[in-house]
Computed example of a mutant assay.
Amino acid sequence: MRRDPLKMIMFPNADPSPEEEEEETRWSIEFLQESLEKDSCYFRKVTDSSGCYAGFAIWTLDPSSTVTGHKTKSTQKRESWNPVSLDVRAWIEVSKRLREERQRALNGQQNIWNINALRREIRAGNLQGVQNTFSDWLEDDLSNISKMGNFYLCIGDAVECSQHEILTYLLSEGIPLDILEVSLAIRRKERRALEIFIAHGWNINEPRTNRDPPLLSQAIKDEKLASWFLDHGADPNAECDFDFTPLAVAMVSASFATIKLLFDRGGSVKHGQLLHYAARRSGPDRIKILDFIISKGAPGMNRLLHQHRPADYLSLEYEGLSTPLGMAAREGTLDIARYLLKRGADPTIRNSLGDLPIKTAEYYNNHDIVALLSEFGATS
């Protein structure tokens, strides 16, 4: 017990005799027992500066309690006593530090309470309540202005509940906008919310992530929403850190009508490696899409994905970058593989890991493509 750092602070002068040990232990147990009989008491492990376990601390997160906690249950009155070996001054200093930690925890809890209160007002559509709650929170502590990032959930609540006035207020007060909340507005087809985001500085051509293109790539599932994006300045050719564009995403999942719309509004086969992504399409109109972009001069028939940009290629070659034919071999799209072969696709080009398309087809058990490639002279 003497090796316990907290005990060493509390009992620096104790004689390590069994009697002294027993007295200290009894004192600790009685204190612990009394604390357990009080509601709202929480136990936290205490460690020293090196992270070693030192003991436990007890405090409450109930803001109405006193420093020592408030009794909500009747407890048996005990006569107060301290072991003779207790260093009261040292224990008071430890208690002071624990109270400071308790206050820090209370401040954090207060932020949670404020956020929850604000979210309730948002969901109720109470603009005045939102304004009052937010203003009160700022007035409590001017340093709270640096913590507004914690309120990002409130933006999502306003979007979900179509509370556009509240959404405008929150953004005007400086609560930051997260790309996830924009994505939520797109999923809900909340055009008014998107307009508010643009008015408050959202860049419609900002990449979703360093590897994902701007959010037009999410809107393409709905032709009308895609048209709205284009009307508000969205660029079908806008890239992320790599040559991957909303139009490239459309090759995989958008309707033919939406793809035509994107081309009509500035989309180009010179961006996005469209042939590679069209080779991954699974819909019944996939050959129609391939015909359409090849008629526009889509490049890259016998080029590996990202090979036209050496820096990108080197950073991604571990993924097994392929030609469009290699992608079809992986996806198992026999009609696409046949189409590409008839238009000059070379079955002898290996992917960035050194595998031939026929080897890829074998690995993914696409036996019909293996047979097709064999007809064109490919061997594994």
Rank of each mutant, 00 (worst) to 15 (best):
N132G: 06
R78Y: 13
L340M: 01
F43D: 05
P284D: 12
A250M: 10
N366T: 05
Q103V: 10
F244N: 02
I122W: 05
G129V: 08
D368N: 15
S282F: 06
V88K: 13
F242H: 06
K260W: 08
L325Q: 06
R211I: 14
Q109G: 12
S49L: 12
A279P: 03
L106E: 11
L230V: 01
I196S: 02
A254V: 07
L305A: 01
T245K: 00
G266S: 07
P207W: 08
F11Q: 01
Q273F: 01
P213L: 09
E317A: 03
R44D: 02
W113T: 10
A345G: 06
S35K: 06
H308C: 04
R2T: 13
D241Y: 07
P207M: 10
E30L: 10
S255V: 09
L372P: 04
V84T: 14
G233S: 11
A378V: 05
I9H: 06
P83Y: 13
E20R: 00
I336S: 04
D264V: 03
W202K: 00
Y169Q: 00
F43P: 00
A124G: 10
L316H: 07
V67W: 13
F31E: 14
I198A: 05
N205S: 08
L153K: 08
S172T: 14
I92H: 11
N116I: 12
D39M: 12
F229Y: 09
V269L: 03
K270Q: 12
C154E: 00
N210A: 10
I349H: 01
V370E: 04
E37P: 01
I112C: 11
N302P: 01
E34G: 06
E139S: 08
W91F: 12
S40H: 15
M10R: 04
L184Q: 13
Q128N: 09
D241F: 09
L177C: 12
E165Q: 00
S64P: 03
T333K: 07
I336Q: 03
G233Q: 14
R120S: 09
A328L: 05
E37R: 10
L261Y: 02
E30V: 03
L170Y: 06
V88W: 09
F43S: 07
A105G: 03
A219K: 05
S146H: 07
P236I: 00
V46G: 05
L353I: 14
A105H: 03
D346M: 03
A158C: 11
D243G: 04
G272Q: 00
D285L: 03
G377C: 09
G267H: 00
E331I: 06
I175W: 01
G174Y: 10
N237G: 04
K7Q: 10
L216M: 12
